[in-house]
Simulated scan of single mutants.
Amino acid sequence: MTTADLHTLTGAYALHALPEDERREFERHLGDCEACTQEVRELSATAARLGLAVAETPPRELRERVLREITTVRQEPPAHGRRGRTVTTGRTGRWSGYALAACIAAAAAFGGVAVWQNQVAQDARQEANQATRQNEQLAQVLSAPDAKTTSGELTGGARGTVVVSQDRNQAVFLASGMERPPSGKVYQLWFNDEGTMRSAGLMNPAASDDAVLLDGPVDRATGMGITVEPAGGSAEPTSDPVALMDFPTA
């Protein structure tokens, strides 16, 4: 994947909608790209605030209209990509107007424009559907009738909130004011299964505010922990926890 391709993944990354290999590659890219880092930080903060908002079920026709039209909406490029060139954004990357025109002309010569357009649209739909599923599950936990919440102070003055739904067997972690992990590192979340730590996913290393649906069922877990791990995460904790939180019981 080229650097131009990576610039287009900020939105999908902020919503935890990237496949595992693309997520790892994008996290390495964040260490060298301040524009993408800032864009991810802003998108993640917005997602976190939406997660904390009171849930309200939108009309069915609104959801269908958004999913139908999402593939026609272009993402704004980072600031460094806006000078002196025409930029086209999408799942296939940012190309100059001349390069894109040349590519389309070549595809037309081989009768491939329809195939190319279909692939772009299909990729966009897959990303949108994956992000939608993630957001729906997160919102369902936050608005579950049996949802219980606990909050606490984290390292460096940050604050964390855990929301657990036993009926859904799922949990959400909301962070505010988290310091960025060291370069090449990421915060990894863990279920605490009576002293045994089980991976529950990764936080966005570029976001100080984040809302994460813990990866996996709650099951017997009595709490959660956070450690600093290499980009991409670890099979088991490799550092002392920066935070430990008990799940709410009442």
Rank of each mutant, 00 (worst) to 15 (best):
I104K: 07
V162I: 15
R159N: 06
P78R: 01
A109Q: 04
T71L: 00
R91C: 08
V163S: 03
D123R: 09
P145W: 02
R74D: 15
A171C: 02
L142W: 02
Q126L: 15
A171S: 06
L67V: 10
Y98S: 13
P78A: 03
Q134D: 09
G93V: 01
R168V: 03
T155W: 07
V162C: 12
A124N: 03
T155M: 11
E76S: 12
A158L: 05
M178H: 01
S183M: 13
T72Q: 11
K148N: 01
T88Q: 10
W116Q: 11
A102Q: 03
A102V: 02
A101T: 14
E127G: 01
T150F: 06
E56S: 14
P59T: 06
G157M: 08
C103F: 12
E56D: 11
A131P: 06
Q119Y: 07
P59A: 04
N135K: 05
H80M: 04
T92G: 12
S183G: 11
Q140P: 04
Q119R: 11
Q119G: 10
E64P: 07
P145A: 15
Q122R: 14
L138H: 04
E64L: 09
M178E: 04
A105G: 08
S176G: 02
Q166K: 15
R133P: 09
P58D: 05
A147G: 00
L154V: 11
P181C: 02
A121S: 06
A107E: 03
P77K: 09
Y98G: 07
A106Y: 07
R68Y: 07
A124I: 07
N118F: 05
N118Y: 01
E136M: 14
E127N: 04
T149N: 12
Q134S: 12
Y98L: 15
A102L: 08
E153R: 12
Q122N: 14
A109R: 13
T71V: 08
G112K: 00
F173T: 00
T161Q: 13
A101G: 15
Q134I: 11
E61R: 01
V164D: 04
L67C: 06
N118V: 03
N135Y: 10
G160E: 01
G160A: 12
S165M: 08
S151M: 06
A109N: 02
